[in-house]
Computed example of a mutant assay.
Amino acid sequence: MYRLYHNPRCSKSRTALALLEEAGTSFTVIRYLDEPPSASTLQALLAKLGVPAADVLRHNEPAFRSLGLDQLAEIDAETAIQALLKEPKLLQRPILETDDRAVIGRPPEQIRTLL
C-alpha cells in the first residue's frame, strides 16, 4: 500500500499525485497539514527515507528560522521530529511511503523509484 504525504497547495505535490493517478496505483492521500503525523509516525518515516533528518525539513519556511533550526550545526532525528510536531508545514513534500521504504518527491518524478 502506498501513502502520499500531500499538500494540495504545492505544485510538486500535485504533480506527484497526478503521476500516481496516471500509473493506476492504489494509494492513500495523507493531508499532513490537516492531520499531522504523530512522533512515532515521523520516526518511522525518517527511518524509511534513510536520509539525514535535516533533509525532511523545508529550510525556506519562516518556521525553520523561528524555531532556531537555522542556528544548529546539525539537526538530529529528535530535533526534526519535535520541529515537525510544532510546525507540520516544515515537512518536505511530497513524500511517497510504502510499508518498508519512502522517498521525497523532489523532483516529483522521484516517486517513480517506489512504483
Rank of each mutant, 00 (worst) to 15 (best):
D70S: 10
L72G: 08
L84Q: 09
Q71F: 09
T79E: 13
A77I: 04
A47G: 08
P52M: 09
A80M: 05
E74K: 15
L45Y: 01
A53S: 04
Q71N: 14
L84K: 09
G68L: 09
F64P: 03
N60P: 02
A77H: 12
S66P: 00
N60F: 09
V51T: 10
N60G: 09
P52A: 07
L84H: 11
I75D: 06
L84Y: 08
L42N: 00
E61G: 05
H59N: 10
K86T: 06
L46G: 04
D70V: 03
A54K: 15
T79G: 09
N60W: 11
G68R: 13
Q43V: 02
H59T: 13
Q82E: 00
E78D: 14
S66G: 03
L91V: 04
L90T: 00
G50V: 06
N60I: 06
Q92M: 04
A53R: 04
P88Q: 03
A77V: 04
L49R: 09
P52D: 11
S66E: 13
P62N: 12
A77F: 08
P52N: 09
H59I: 10
Q43F: 00
A77C: 07
R65S: 13
L85N: 03
Q43K: 10
E74T: 14
L67N: 04
K48D: 05
V56P: 07
L57C: 05
V51G: 02
L72N: 12
I81M: 03
L45N: 03
V56F: 13
L46A: 01
A73Y: 11
K89H: 11
I81Y: 02
V56S: 13
V56M: 14
L57Q: 12
A77N: 12
L46S: 05
A63D: 13
S66T: 09
P52Q: 09
L84V: 06
A80I: 02
K48Q: 13
L90G: 00
E61K: 09
A53Q: 03
L46E: 07
L84R: 10
A44W: 09
R65K: 15
V51E: 10
I81F: 03
A73E: 14
P88E: 00
E78F: 02
R65G: 11
R58D: 08
E61L: 07
L90P: 02
K48F: 06
L90V: 01
Q82T: 01
P62Y: 14
P88C: 03
T79K: 14
H59A: 12
L90S: 00
P88S: 01
D76Y: 12
